[in-house]
Lab assay of single mutants.
Amino acid sequence: RTSMTEEYRVPDGMVGLIIGRGGEQINKIQQDSGCKVQISPDSGGLPERSVSLTGAPESVQKAKMMLDDIVSR
């Protein structure tokens, strides 16, 4: 199975929601999608934060859908 890494961007203000209490939400995204999700520690003052998604292409797609779902709330 091919693994890929894709850079994705999320609004900086949503990072807390994506990570969740004690990392609960980000762990759920990783478990449900099978994709490794790494959020860059700092946006460098930019409105968006970089997130790197690593996994099989379908896992990366699923993680993106889950991120979009959180961001659109």
Rank of each mutant, 00 (worst) to 15 (best):
P47E: 11
K64V: 03
Y8H: 08
I26M: 11
L67K: 02
V10E: 03
Q38G: 07
I70V: 11
A56I: 08
V51I: 15
S52I: 13
G13Y: 13
G55S: 00
S40M: 12
G23T: 05
N27Q: 12
D69A: 12
N27S: 11
N27I: 09
S52M: 14
G13R: 15
S72N: 14
V51P: 01
L46C: 14
K36G: 03
E7F: 15
V60D: 01
L53H: 01
S52F: 13
V10F: 08
D42L: 06
I29A: 01
A56Y: 10
S3P: 14
Q61A: 14
I19M: 15
D68G: 08
V15E: 12
Q31M: 10
E6G: 06
C35N: 00
M65Y: 05
M66V: 03
S40Y: 06
Q25L: 11
I39H: 02
S43N: 11
R9F: 15
P11M: 04
R49T: 12
Q31I: 08
G44V: 08
L17C: 08
I26A: 04
K36R: 11
I29G: 00
K28L: 05
Q31D: 07
E58D: 12
G13N: 15
E58Q: 08
M4I: 09
R73L: 13
S43T: 13
M66G: 02
T54F: 05
D32W: 05
S50F: 06
L67F: 03
D12L: 07
M4L: 13
I26C: 02
N27R: 14
K64R: 12
R73E: 13
V37T: 03
S50I: 15
I18Y: 03
S59W: 00
A63W: 00
V60M: 05
G55A: 00
V15N: 04
N27A: 09
M14C: 12
D42S: 11
Q61T: 12
S40T: 11
E24K: 10
V71Q: 05
K64Q: 03
P47D: 13
R21I: 06
P11C: 03
G13L: 07
Q30E: 10
P47T: 12
S72A: 14
I18N: 04
K62F: 02
K28N: 05
Q30L: 05
G55R: 00
P47W: 04
L53T: 02
T5P: 02
G20F: 00
S50D: 05
Y8P: 04
I70D: 02
S33P: 00
D68S: 08
V60I: 15
E48D: 12
G34V: 00
T2C: 06
S33T: 13
P41A: 13
I19G: 07
D12Y: 06
Y8L: 10
S52A: 09
G45H: 13
S52C: 14
R73G: 15
G22H: 06
E6R: 10
M65E: 14
Q30D: 00
R9G: 05
S59P: 01
V51N: 00
A63P: 02
D32E: 09
C35S: 03
V37Y: 00
I29K: 01
S43G: 12
L17E: 15
E6Y: 07
V10M: 14
E48A: 11
I29P: 01
S50Y: 08
Q25V: 12
S43D: 12
G13K: 15
L46K: 15
S72T: 11
D12K: 12
T5R: 07
V51F: 10
M14W: 04
I19W: 08
D12N: 08
M66R: 03
S59G: 07
S43K: 09
Q38H: 15
K36A: 10
M66W: 03
E24S: 10
G22D: 12
D32H: 10
G34T: 02
G44K: 14
K62L: 07
A63R: 00
R1E: 15
G22I: 04
S72I: 10
G45T: 10
M65D: 14
G22N: 07
L17W: 09
I18Q: 04
T54E: 08
E58R: 06
T5H: 05
N27Y: 07
K36D: 14
L67V: 04
P47C: 12
A56F: 04
S52N: 07
M65Q: 15
E58G: 08
K28G: 03
A56G: 09
R73K: 14
D32T: 10
R9H: 15
G13P: 08
S59A: 13
G13V: 04
V51G: 01
I29R: 00
V71Y: 06
I39M: 10
E24W: 15
M65W: 06
K62M: 10
T54N: 04
E6W: 10
G23C: 06
M65N: 14
R73W: 06
S43R: 12
K64H: 03
R49I: 09
V15K: 05
Y8G: 02
I18P: 04
E24L: 06
P41L: 07
V60Q: 02
P57F: 04
P47S: 12
K62I: 08
K62R: 09
D68E: 11
S52K: 13
S52G: 05
E6M: 15
P11L: 04
V71P: 02
R9C: 08
I19K: 13
D69P: 02
R49K: 09
G13D: 15
